[in-house]
Amino acid sequence: MSDPKPSLAKAIQTQFAPTLRRDGFLGTGQRYWRVMGDQCQLVEIQGSRQGKKFAVNLGIQPIAIPLRSGVMPEPKRLREMECMFRRRLAVQKGDQWWDYQPNEPSMDAAARDACSVYEQVGKHQLEAMAESSSPIYTVTLEAFAARAFSFNGFGNTGVLMALTLAQIRKAAGNSAEARAFARIGLDEIGDRAGGSGLTAELRELLE
């Protein structure tokens, strides 16, 4: 019987997944998730369409906040692209991709290196965002409006972040801040086309 064909998914499962599971992640293949406090956090592998390289995407979704589809998030089914706060795993700012050749040693080496970057950088970024002192919960209205804050590289459009922060404040019982963040979101939309759906959601938070 011939040896099974090498695959990136297998390399991730053998070289990267054990570290993720140690940190409380569940999942298989190229998608892993965990619940920390009131967040679902994801680590998801994105292969290139051309093959021979991959990136690692990190996502954070407040569990109490609906997805853009309108449904509440289910951690087991959630995808990184649906998360409100997203970023690429990278040693420094910017995009990072791991190249590999279509053989087991090369794939394993790339997966090990990605795991190393997760341990150096991504692990701490995710943990910091789940703490009570996380900027998700503590960023002030003034800092957000002036873009004078850091979400450890996680983000989305300004309007969607304003909406999410408003929803988080409302869920925590802070209606005044919820309305204030909603106003910031409405100011950012202004007269732009295509903002009608978001406008309605933000206005609802003002009531």
Rank of each mutant, 00 (worst) to 15 (best):
Lys123Pro: 10
Lys123Gly: 10
Trp33Gly: 07
Asn103Gly: 00
Ser116Leu: 09
Gly24Met: 11
Gln13Phe: 07
Ala11His: 09
Ser106Met: 04
Pro102Asp: 06
Leu163Ile: 09
Thr157His: 06
Ala171Gln: 11
Arg88Cys: 03
Gly24Ile: 00
Lys10Tyr: 11
Pro102Tyr: 00
Ala64Asn: 12
Ala114Pro: 08
Ser69Lys: 09
Ser2Val: 06
Glu82Gly: 09
Glu204Phe: 01
Thr19Lys: 11
Lys52Gly: 12
Glu207Gln: 15
Val159Lys: 03
Ala9Glu: 13
Arg79Ala: 14
Val43Pro: 03
Leu78His: 08
Leu141His: 05
Trp33Arg: 13
Ser116Met: 04
Phe54Glu: 06
Leu42His: 03
His124Thr: 13
Asn103His: 14
Arg31Ile: 00
Phe16Ile: 00
Ile168Gln: 10
Phe54Ala: 00
Trp98Glu: 05
Ala200Arg: 15
Arg203Tyr: 08
Val121Leu: 01
Gln101Leu: 14
Ala200Asn: 12
Lys76Ser: 13
Gln41Lys: 06
Thr140Tyr: 11
Gln50Asp: 12
Asn174Glu: 07
Glu142Gly: 07
Leu202Cys: 04
Gln41Gly: 08
Lys53Gln: 15
Leu202Thr: 05
Leu160Met: 15
Pro4Ser: 07
Arg147His: 14
Arg86Asn: 09
Met161Trp: 07
Met81Gly: 00
Val121Met: 06
Ala143Glu: 14
Ala128Leu: 13
Ser134Val: 09
Pro4Arg: 02
Phe151Gly: 00
Arg169Cys: 14
Gly194His: 07
Ala200Cys: 05
Ala110Cys: 08
Val35Phe: 07
Asp99Glu: 14
Asn103Ala: 02
Lys93Trp: 09
Pro4Asn: 04
Met81Trp: 13
Val71Gln: 14
Asp38Lys: 13
Val139Asn: 03
Gly197Tyr: 11
Asp108Val: 03
Leu20Ser: 01
Phe151Asn: 06
Leu8Ile: 08
Ala176Leu: 13
Ser134Gly: 02
Gly37Thr: 08
Ser106Ile: 04
Tyr137Gln: 12
Ser106Gln: 01
Phe149Glu: 11
Cys115Ala: 13
Pro102Phe: 05
Leu141Cys: 08
Ala182Gln: 09
Ala109Glu: 12
Val121Ile: 11
Phe144Asn: 04
Trp97Pro: 03
Asp187Pro: 01
Gly185Asp: 09
Arg31Gly: 05
Asn156Tyr: 03
Lys123Arg: 15
Gly70Asn: 05
Gln120Asp: 10
Gly47Ala: 14
Arg34Val: 09
Glu201His: 08
Leu126Phe: 05
Asp191Ile: 04
Ala114Ile: 05
Asp113Asn: 12
Met107Tyr: 03
